[in-house]
Amino acid sequence: MVSKELVAASTTTLVLSILSEGDNYGYALIQRVQEVSGGKLQWSEGMLYPVLHWMEKERLIDSEWREMENGRKRKYYRIRREGRKNLQAEKEQWTAVHSTLVNLWKTKPGLT
């Protein structure tokens, strides 16, 4: 299980990564993260929405209400150009952290 702090720190990057695959809504975002992480990464569900709204305010993503077949509406989020740029920068940073850790652990195999 990934710690709360790390989950919080990675939320925007995860959201941007999933939205770069295509437009999506909140519930599906959570499902996707669970699926890809094999259940190791768990979001407290309701907490995702304030983050999404904050990202919208920061103009990283867009949102629109779309009607479903049963007449109810669902809010879809879409990544903006700003968001893609942000994702690129985040990608480099996370990769840097990742490769640093991997290299460190390679030299000291006793740790793992």
């Binding site: 569900e45 309701g46 907490m47 304030p50 709204h53 305010k57």
Partner: peptide, 17 residues
């Protein structure tokens, strides 16, 4: 329960709104 109680979500929403 998974979505969370109002009291817990309120402060987070309050920061955005």
């Amino acid at each position: 329960r998974r979505l969370g109680p109002r009291q817990e979500l309120e402060p987070e929403y309050g920061k955005v709104n």
